[in-house]
Design a protein around this nucleic acid. Structure first.
Length: 636
RNA sequence: GCCGGAGUAGCUCAGUUGGUGAGAGCACGCGUCUCAUAAGCGCGGGGUCGGCGGUUCGAAUCCGCCCUCCGGCACCA
């Protein structure tokens, strides 16, 4: 294989990228750079997913046309990616003409294959639940929650015959065990496939923001169907056959583990139907947490990759994410750990190693080194072993092991210097040749390690190569990734590559962004349409005192509370069990929505709603009073 | 409750298809060199590999049950 087509998931443009998104792109970039280092003609694709209703709404909230909003977000994404030194060859947007051409072409092929049928999305619809109900969910033909007979609803829709591809997909998984990685994800999907598939809806009626179906312009392609096709449309499906022939099929889709099903089931089925070759491999990477917590904007646990890369530059961040996290598994990021790894891996080991070797070369040999004999057996063997291990690991996308291999050589070189003590040799006139060779060996080991680290730390590696007298132009692993014991080297001694960071000045406590730049709530609040006082007065808020509370059986969130609202007692159900024990609620005064339509939750009728602040991804906090007024008091 | 993931040294984690007395980094203690960014190198302490059973000549690794933590789903009026 002389060419390699690599993709990452395209990103929703609802918000700016966080470190988790950046992680995916960085690992993909490392793979792309590794392939290029191997002399493989590489096409690395990234992009944005713009046809979502959320985007449409968000743009409207900000008073922008959807496209103008997407243009702006593209700049934000590109700025971030540039800051991380990502070497993508192409950046696709799903609003581009080439993508529309690709979607149209693929949809038509699937349609012509007879795998898209016009149907009605029909089923029992419970008005109370605002949801479709499966036959099996009904009890005596009635909604078990509302005890009402649901309506039979029909909605025009187009379906893709996904179910038809159950067996072909199973066959494909059997024939290509490498198709989905890591293995655990494959097992999950196999179990899902064995359980059978259902046809899926691929269109939405009555929406303008999207790509019209080629066979029915009144409907647009459903966003997922649309998005997946980007991988093919970017390389010319439906617009540039020559390019498509050159790059398709994709060699590797790097995606997050949460969207494995789309890439390992729906996407290959679509391609099978259209008679297009399947991608060779899908790799589902893990998630990055911040101090063990899921990244969330409102909790202050979303790390801005821009900020992280600004701390020491992009290379240290890239090294951290690649070396410290087993690729495929989940990983954690914290500022203290980031600083620690920076000091250990970069300042103490690699950076200091470059300093000591260039300093000695300068001091003892005026920076000129020419081999005087054979290289150190031990170090040469280590270098060659490391280079081989590195290749095996990187070829298997065990990126963390590839980084570790390079570091074994760095550590080994520090040990080598301690063992050979060049400063002692320098005092012995009879050891002149020996000293030259020792320094040459050390410089060569650094050169080799820098070559291996090039995909991970492109800028720093080039700088190291310059300092130890190696070239960084047009690197080729076959040629430059092996031990050399020839040629004069000119070493240059300059300032520290990575000065030690003596103290941590950033905190790892979740820090919600300062209110001045708190984009999440402030923007959405400002953007929400204002309501009149009359609208608000429709909502009747009242003080209620909790008389009794108990956990709803088999529920994780729900607590059933009996409250006194002044004029009567009521039963309501509140989703606060994760934050409150029922006993702790009794006697408390809370605020409820008094005039809310009743609803049935887990079989219990709730007459009202208990107010609580509900942070995104956090636990609710009840609205309470310093000095509780009597039950029934109106709140306004 | 259902479905996943995880539980290995004080901390963060590696441990390919079960097999040499269980590892790395950080932190800690001791020693040592002086070329270097108070960095490097060497030695050391410290672990019932969540618990209990089972398969096996042999299990951190496979199987069963249980405990704990974290996600996702169902309820979130």
């Amino acid at each position: 294989m002389t060419r390699f087509f690599l993709t990452t998931a395209i990103d929703y443009v609802n918000s700016r990228p966080h470190l988790g998104t950046a992680y995916e792109k960085i690992t993909a970039d490392v793979i792309a750079r590794y392939k290029r280092l191997c002399g493989v003609d590489t096409y690395f694709l990234m992009g944005n997913d713009e046809h979502s209703q959320n985007v449409f709404r968000k743009a409207a909230e900000e008073g922008l046309s959807p496209l103008a909003y997407c243009d702006r977000m593209e700049q934000e994404f590109r700025d971030t990616w540039r800051h991380l030194n990502l070497s993508f060859d192409d950046f696709i947007r799903t609003t581009q003409p080439r993508h529309k051409a690709g979607v149209t072409a693929l949809a038509k092929r699937i349609y012509d294959a007879g795998d898209i049928y016009e149907g009605v999305y029909e089923g029992w619809y419970c008005v109370g639940c605002e949801a479709f109900k499966q036959e099996k969910d009904l009890v005596d033909g009635k909604c078990p929650l509302h005890l009402t007979t649901p309506q039979w609803i029909k909605e025009k829709n187009y379906f893709f015959r996904l179910a038809k591809y159950q067996q072909p997909l199973l066959d494909h998984f059997a024939a290509h065990p490498e198709f989905l990685q890591p293995a655990m994800r494959r097992n999950e999907i196999l179990r899902l496939l064995e359980g059978g598939l259902e046809d899926i809806s691929v269109s939405r009626a009555g929406q303008a923001w999207g790509i019209p179906l080629p066979f029915d312009a009144a409907s647009v392609v459903y966003v997922w169907f649309d998005a997946l096709i980007n991988y093919a449309s970017a390389v010319g499906l439906g617009s540039d056959q020559q390019m498509f022939d050159r790059w398709w099929p994709a060699d590797l889709h790097i995606i997050g583990k949460d969207i494995t099903r789309f890439h390992a089931v729906i996407w290959p089925a679509m391609l099978m139907s259209a008679g297009v070759a399947l991608p060779r491999q899908v790799f589902g990477h893990g998630f990055i947490t911040f101090n063990g917590q899921r990244m969330s904007k409102s909790l202050g646990t979303a790390i801005d990759p821009f900020e992280a890369a600004s701390r020491f530059g992009p290379d240290p961040l890239r090294l951290y994410l690649v070396k410290e996290i087993a690729f495929g598994g989940d990983g954690d990021f914290s500022w203290t750990r980031y600083d620690e790894r920076y000091n250990v891996d970069l300042a103490n080991n690699l950076g200091n190693l470059v300093s000591r070797v260039t300093a000695m070369a300068d001091r003892y040999r005026q920076g000129r080194l020419l081999p005087t004999g054979a290289g150190s057996d031990r170090l040469v063997r280590l270098g060659e072993q490391v280079a081989a291990d590195y290749r095996h690991s990187m070829d298997a996308y065990a990126l963390h092991e590839g980084a570790a291999a390079a570091y074994r050589l760095i550590d080994g070189t520090n040990e080598f210097i301690a063992a050979t003590s060049p400063w002692a040799l320098a005092k012995d006139p009879g050891a002149a040749d020996r000293l030259t060779q020792v320094l040459f060996d050390a410089a060569e080991a650094i050169r080799l390690a820098a070559v291996l680290l090039t995909p991970i730390m492109p800028t720093a590696s080039a700088e190291i190569l310059r300092r130890v007298g190696g070239s960084s132009d047009g690197l080729c692993l076959d040629r430059d990734g092996r031990w050399r014991n020839n040629g004069e080297r000119g070493l240059v001694q300059e300032g520290s590559l990575w000065p030690r960071k003596e103290q941590t000045i950033v905190t790892d406590n979740p820090t919600p962004p300062p209110s001045t730049q708190h984009p999440a709530p402030s923007i959405s609040e400002a953007a929400t349409p204002r309501i009149s006082i009359d609208d608000f007065m429709k909502v009747e808020l009242r003080v209620a005192k909790v008389l009794a509370a108990e956990r709803v059986p088999k529920s994780r969130r729900l607590i059933k509370v009996q409250v006194d609202v002044g004029t009567e007692q009521r039963t309501l159900v509140a989703g606060i069990a994760e934050a409150y024990e029922p006993e702790a609620l009794v006697g408390r005064s809370v605020v409820i929505v008094f005039n809310l339509q009743p609803a049935t939750l887990m079989g219990i009728e709730s007459n009202g709603m208990v107010l609580a602040a509900s942070p995104d991804g956090g636990k609710p906090t009840l609205v309470s009073f310093e000095d509780p007024p009597p039950p029934g008091t109106r709140v306004r």
